[in-house]
């Protein structure tokens, strides 16, 4: 079970250009992250805190394959994403960075500022502000293992170390 975090609520089709604007793509992540979601909520980047949870609508992360869209959120302290559903590449990228991405049909019940925690293995989100619990799609075992390891690179590091150990 993840620790509690405060919800930041966004609408449908939050795209990668809004999450990681192309104008700042060649520069350092710190600068890019400062502009994360600026086009839809200029207050987000300056005020988001470590452990806060992003709540999106349909098709969160649509657009480019740039994983800086995930990294910018991660840099700002976000560890958990909840949305009605995610764009395919963004979903892969989130898990590859060890960021939990959960699809939940009941996101409309979440209000900005609610305190949330989640259990990706059981597929459950708890809203500590309202006392409600919501069902979400649990992460399949092989993906959960990767997220638990901290992402794809850490996962590969373990796998390669095991192989070396075996040979």
């Amino acid at each position: 079970m993840n620790e509690c975090g405060k919800a930041w609520v966004f609408g449908d089709n939050i795209d990668t250009d809004v999450l990681a604007p192309g104008l700042y793509m060649k520069g350092p992540l710190k600068v890019l992250a400062a502009h994360c979601l600026e086009a839809v909520d200029p207050d987000f980047a300056p005020n988001v805190e470590v452990g806060d949870v992003i709540v999106g609508g349909e098709n969160f992360g649509i657009g480019s394959s740039r994983e800086q869209a995930v990294q910018a959120l991660q840099f700002l302290g976000v560890r958990t994403l909840i949305a009605k559903n995610f764009a395919g590449i963004f979903f892969r990228n989130a898990l590859n960075f060890g960021v939990v991405a959960l699809s939940c049909a009941e996101v409309d019940k979440i209000t900005a500022g609610d305190q949330l925690s989640c259990d990706p293995e059981q597929g459950r989100i708890t809203n500590h502000t309202t006392g409600e619990t919501y069902a979400c799609d649990p992460l399949p075992e092989q993906l959960l293992a990767m997220v638990t390891d901290g992402g794809l690179v850490d996962h590969l590091e373990r796998r390669l170390a095991k192989k070396e150990h075996a040979s």
Partner: peptide, 29 residues
């Protein structure tokens, strides 16, 4: 390593986009 990778599907290839970490995983394995 780009989201418009579905373009390659016009040639009957199953081509899809991935991020850089996924790509690194492919390059290694």
């Amino acid at each position: 390593g780009d989201s418009h990778s579905p373009t390659g599907g016009a040639f009957g290839s199953f081509m899809f986009g991935v991020g850089a970490t996924d790509m690194a995983g492919v390059l290694v394995t």
